[in-house]
Computed example of a mutant assay.
Amino acid sequence: MRQFSEERPEDRWEVEALFDLSFAPGREALSSYRLREGVAPVAPLCLVARDAGGILGAAIRYWPVRVGEVPALLLGPVAVHPTRQGEGMGALLIRESLGRATALGHPRVMLVGDAPYYGRYGFAKLAEVEMPPPTNPERVLGLALVPGAWDGIAGSVMRAI
């Protein structure tokens, strides 16, 4: 399961079921979900990984957001089916999708997550960027896909319009 494809509309319910399985109940109450309401995901970056039998093993999504008037990508959710964890699929999905984001000209990506895990991909704390509450500011991380893309960026994260 090393081949990825863009998530198709017919994948939606299966991907949602994977996210439900992978995350705690009430995941949609998180502040990051409020930023996604009524906004289409960035389709070329929303990827799925299936095995030779067509079974979904992992998925990742990206969403457009703004920090003030500055556009950014919001990575997440990313999930690997429990039976496929430990195979490196999550890391491959993240690297593949970040490479695609760079190739498409996106300058910056952010997420809410664990710094020790996402730090290995180059993500670091965004001290001046505020997610809607209740988000732990220590978990607001960013990655510049273009050198300096986060320099001087500060403010509240808002839904893309």
Rank of each mutant, 00 (worst) to 15 (best):
F4Y: 15
P9I: 05
D11N: 06
R12D: 05
W13S: 13
V15C: 00
V15P: 00
E16L: 10
S22G: 10
F23H: 10
A24Y: 10
G26K: 08
R27V: 05
E28R: 15
E28W: 14
L30T: 12
L30Y: 14
S31C: 03
S31W: 00
S31L: 00
L35R: 02
L35E: 11
R36S: 05
E37M: 14
A40Y: 04
P41M: 00
P41N: 07
V42Y: 01
V42C: 05
V42L: 09
A43E: 06
A43G: 03
A43K: 03
L45R: 01
A49K: 00
R50M: 03
G54D: 11
G54Q: 05
I55P: 13
G57D: 09
A58L: 02
A58Y: 06
I60N: 07
R61V: 07
Y62M: 03
R66M: 13
V67I: 09
G76T: 11
V78S: 06
A79D: 01
H81Y: 14
T83F: 15
R84I: 13
Q85P: 14
G86I: 08
E87S: 09
G88D: 15
M89R: 11
A91C: 15
L92E: 08
L93C: 07
L93G: 02
I94V: 03
R95M: 02
R95G: 08
G99P: 04
H106E: 10
H106T: 07
P107M: 12
V112A: 12
V112S: 06
P116D: 13
P116F: 12
P116W: 11
Y117D: 08
Y117A: 11
G119M: 07
G122Q: 02
F123I: 10
K125G: 00
K125F: 00
L126Q: 13
A127E: 09
A127L: 07
E128N: 09
E130K: 08
P132V: 01
P134Y: 05
N136K: 02
L141A: 04
L143C: 09
L143T: 06
A144D: 05
L145Q: 10
V146A: 14
P147A: 13
G148T: 11
A149D: 01
D151M: 12
D151N: 12
I153C: 07
I153A: 09
A154I: 01
A154N: 10
A154Q: 01
S156V: 11
S156F: 11
S156W: 11
